[in-house]
Design a binder for these strands. Structure first.
Lengths: 210, 210
DNA sequence: GGCGTATGGTGGACGGTGTCCACATAATTC
DNA sequence: GAATTATGTGGACACCGTCCACCATACGCC
């Protein structure tokens, strides 16, 4: 046996393995949702032995939780992009409405195009807390973006100020509910054309209800 | 070794093991959601060896799928109860609105009180189809109940007939979204009082938007 | 009525997973 | 330079879903 007595046993720069594990977990989540982020596979991709993960995370759920906030951050990024792409000029009321609509469409597009990540973003393990809004280094949360959109609606004079408080919740519920029903629920697999019709219908519904 | 050469190896009446497995799975789902319905534990509760399950289900997902329709059926049952409990007399318009509201409240109550079952009802395995509406022997689906509620709204003159088509979807999305956000999503753990306020606000939102 | 055959149970095994323990090394601190 | 801490390794355990080979019963058919 001429086996090397101890394989180099190299050690990566501080924090590198940790973030690499999160990145690997994100890949797995993208491909297969939260259940697919399996600790051993993540370590395999990073090129490290399974137990090494326990130097950086208490357990698999702790890793998953980090992946979840990363996924949520990606959703927020997509929403930011889309709202920035809305042409600005013209009527202020129309613009505010268009920007809010862009947020909703981005939300739904992300859910259908990146179903794994979308599912993961909301799959924070049961006993763990959802990270408070906008942890350091991250974008504003989708919830905050929605709040800004509604504020714009008020300043543009579209939404009466007295109806602004807590208006986030029904709007968020509507969009989130449709996203869930289409991507994971009984409405999954409906043809894209019908899904788009549902989206338009939903936006009109929200505009009347808010 | 005086071991009995072959333990009785008894055989249950036809179909009994199958339904017992579903019932056991339902218990597991109630306590811990879809991930908790684990094949081996179900067989253990039924008092049978793990492999016996494979005589009745192709695999664990097939068992889970059956548990899902049972859970959905329970949700429908709760909705039926609640809508039947709405006092009938008085203004037809008010009555129709009250009955639709009762459906929504029942949906949300079920989600908060039976979170495991609620989660399971919508956790049909990816590659399997959602059972078409109202399989034999089951109650009407929640979706059908919602449709009836909206029909009542039309006949009572509350909802213009031209807005009836496909009105299920935005309404369903709103209620379902809130249920998901409160029970599994970022809103979980909010105090019950706030949750109730959100529910009222949501119903008003729906009434305006529909 | 005897008998073959499908039906539904058993036992044992395999690979995969999360997690724990004991150990070994590299980096950091005094 | 020594002691301590942080990080990676190796090996093990229990649990899970699933497959294979075997066996006992119930049932239809001649």
């Amino acid at each position: 046996m001429i086996a090397a007595p101890h394989p180099p046993s190299r050690r990566r720069p501080a924090g590198q393995v940790r973030s690499a594990l999160i990145a690997a977990g994100l890949e797995l989540a993208q491909a297969g949702g939260p259940d697919a982020v399996v600790l051993r596979e993540a370590t395999r991709r990073v090129g490290v032995v399974p137990n090494a993960a326990y130097r950086h995370f208490a357990d698999r759920d702790a890793l998953l939780a980090e992946v979840c906030v990363a996924a949520m951050d990606q959703l927020a990024g997509r929403m930011l992009e889309q709202v920035a792409a809305v042409p600005g000029g013209g009527d202020a009321k129309q613009a505010a409405i268009a920007r809010l609509g862009a947020l909703g469409v981005a939300y739904l597009d992300f859910a259908t195009q990146e179903t794994g990540l979308f599912e993961t973003a909301f799959a924070v393990p049961r006993h763990l807390e959802y990270a408070g809004d906008t942890a350091d280094g991250h974008r504003p949360t989708p919830f905050q973006l929605l709040g800004r959109g509604l504020d714009e609606l008020v300043t543009a004079g579209v939404l009466p100020a007295e109806r602004r408080p807590d208006a986030e919740y029904p709007v968020w519920s509507s969009v989130h509910g449709m996203a869930v029903l289409i991507t994971q629920g009984p409405l999954r697999g409906v043809p894209g054309q019908f899904a788009r019709q549902l989206t338009d219908q939903l936006l009109a519904f929200i505009a009347r209800g808010v």
